[in-house]
Amino acid sequence: MDGEELTEQETALYDRQIRVWGADAQRRLSKAHILVYGLKGTVAEFCKNIVLAGVGSLTLVDDRVATEESLAANFLIPPDENVYGGKTLAELCCDSLKDFNPMVRVLVEKGDLLSFGVDFYSKFDVVVVCCSSLATKKLINAKCRKLSKRLAFYAVDCKDSCGEIFVDLQLHRYSKKKLEETIECELNYPSFEEAISVPWRTLPRRASKVYFAMRVLERFEEADGCKPGEISADDLPSVLKLKKELCESQSLSESHIPDGLLERLVTNGREFPPVCAIIGGILGQEVIKAISGKGDPLKNFFFFDAMDGKGVIEDVSSSNTGS
């Protein structure tokens, strides 16, 4: 790849990771621009990873003010009200992240993500949204897809012991090493809307239960009009009712969405820090793969549940079902 060589300072700082992904990938990283929305614990983990990796810039969007709950799994915010009082989550996280790596620009963008136009998105190579409503995920993903340039879209969520990552790289070309050779590969991703429209009964019998549970919660929040994460134990009966309806309409056995799993997610929707670290770590790795164009990226969902300890990839796209 052409472009400037890494500086001596960069080579010294990034020595250990250049040994993992190569100088070429490091150069691409240093030119990549990332946008994140929803600064909870999982995204804080992701931001740390990507700033350490040495991306070009990271832009944070989250106008909410800090509350005790928002501090729970977020190590970027000091718990002193004198410090966090009055500042937005994005501003607070920005202050900490800048410190991690002076070679990365960390910025705050104020305003409502949904109102930003296509021009705004065109400045970025990667967009990550966290803890967003069904409508937000669909809309932002659609905006990313309208651009003439290719933009990687990720949606993440952590609840209780579970975490989910959705990936849309559109048409992704990359290289990977197979034995001694480097081979070129291509993957075609569905949008979020397309992916979740895939009929449940066509998914593999052993598809992750977390996938279905997250879709039930998403639909419940949409129907109920409550904000993501505001769901509580009182909602459990309604959630279980919705699950039954969805399973019936999708011809899926109800045993695929255990009540116990939904109960955990509903009654304890808070992030669990070890899961934030795991999901933020996998997401960081995936974004590095997408930017560098090296190595198989995951397609197109990843799930982790601390209860069974498995970190599973599910391909939920119409072209790939029934196989």
Partner: peptide
């Protein structure tokens, strides 16, 4: 004998250790 090391793997492993 320099070890190849990245932040993400260490973060994931640390999460698993705590669990």
């Amino acid at each position: 004998n320099i070890v190849h090391a990245v932040a993400t793997t260490n973060a994931i492993i640390a999460g698993l250790i705590v669990i």
